[in-house]
Nucleic acid binder design. Structure first.
Length: 168
DNA sequence: ATAAATCACAACG
DNA sequence: CGTTGTGATTTAT
């Protein structure tokens, strides 16, 4: 962990619960799952700027749409400051995945230009700070098997099920 | 700054 | 089914 860029945390209500969105000055920096309790009671540091409120609205809409299996037409600016170029490339590739579809790690690797970096892609997915919006859960292994998932494999399964994706 | 260990995969024997 | 081949991130010298 480098320096803490002081983020503003706001709750986002969705059909799956209340997510916690962490905004920086540049945009949406991180998204946390409904923790159920006040662990992230982080009290929004301070004011919510006008654009930040816009981001909040966009985030909420996007989350609800994605959870409903529909494409998120508009997304708030994502702040990936501090992350590596490789990770950003991977996540950008993930955003291109259509709802209800799945891609393998190999496909993602090929998309970003390093067909052999499948393992690195896995690592990048694990480092993804914004689940659901960046559909890291839509990425399966080559033979349609679920690898793993940060913070609970069952959660990933639920997400896939939400989009009508059936696992063999 | 360099080097070793780790990882949410894939291909091959 | 165990082994090897890959690329990047993280942790330890």
């Amino acid at each position: 962990m480098k320096t803490k860029p002081q983020l503003v945390s706001l709750p986002v209500k969705t059909i799956a619960g209340e997510f916690i969105a962490h905004y920086s000055d540049k945009g949406l920096a991180e998204l946390d799952w409904p923790v159920g309790r006040a662990s992230s009671r982080t009290v929004a540091k301070k004011i919510e700027s006008a654009k930040m409120r816009t981001w909040q609205r966009l985030t909420e809409t996007a989350l609800q749409r994605v959870l409903a299996g529909k494409p998120a037409a508009k997304l708030p600016p994502l702040d990936w400051t501090g992350k590596t170029e490789f990770q950003q490339s991977v996540w950008r590739a993930l955003l291109k995945i259509a709802p209800g579809k799945t891609r393998s790690y190999g496909e993602i690797a090929a998309t970003i230009g390093n067909p052999k970096a499948v393992r690195a892609v896995g690592g990048a997915c694990g480092a993804n700070p914004i689940p659901v919006i960046v559909p890291c859960h839509r990425v399966l292994a080559a033979n349609r098997k679920i690898g793993g998932f940060s913070g609970g494999l069952e959660r990933k399964r639920s997400l896939l099920e939400c989009e009508g994706i059936v696992l063999s």
